[in-house]
Design a protein around this nucleic acid. Sequence first.
DNA 1: CAGACACTTAAGTAAGTACTTGACTATAGT
DNA 2: ACTATAGTCAAGTACTTACTTAAGTGTCTG
Lengths: 114, 114
Amino acid sequence: MLDQTIDLDRTFQALADKSRRTMVERLTLGPASVSELAEPLAMSLAAVVQHVQVLEACGVVKTEKVGMTRMCRIERAAITAAEQWITDRRRGWETRLDRLGDVLNEVATNEEKP
Amino acid sequence: MLDQTIDLDRTFQALADKSRRTMVERLTLGPASVSELAEPLAMSLAAVVQHVQVLEACGVVKTEKVGMTRMCRIERAAITAAEQWITDRRRGWETRLDRLGDVLNEVATNEEKP
DNA sequence: CAGACACTTAAGTAAGTACTTGACTATAGT
DNA sequence: ACTATAGTCAAGTACTTACTTAAGTGTCTG
């Protein structure tokens, strides 16, 4: 429960960076090495490694060393938790707006035949 | 287009904080003043105002001054954009996994009757 | 074995975040 | 008019982030 809060913090934080989102987008196409992730980004490899560490720390990606390359792949759970949080909120305000709509309809109906 | 990237940065950044998520959760129940948002949070009013400013800067909430209170309400577009980004990624990796599933099924079928 | 390759680690830096306190400014009620 | 309320503004501070460069460490390839 408390852990989930921490993970949401870290997951949203991880997604709050264009470079990391680019990496995630690449990884949705399939696993990739660190240098493959680095390829479209204008920064040092060391910086990319640090971004990978951020993504790994929040559980959005998992990595595994194969020979001299580190293969990265996306891990569904963490990112899904973030999606779920937003979806739950949206559901909240949508049902509220539905109820508001009902009330407005009722008022309108009552005004039509007073 | 470029703006959208900036907005996603800011929106995810905004959601990467427990206090701000608490505020958003409160606001999904309906509009609230700054002090109402502050009530469950262990920090100064000034700090809460700053959080509200962050949420407003990324478009997740809109505010309006009514008398001496500032009323805040949630604004769907920005937060929906964030949700959409995740949903699009998930759709990406799900279709990829589906294709992988197809390939595996095909392999399995071929192995059954070689 | 030599050299290239793919990271890895460490240390440093500039900018950004999340607060704080304290002084101030408009309302609103009595 | 007097005072409480609800917020606003400006500094200041401790901490974190997103990089950088430079010097390693294992892992192939010829």
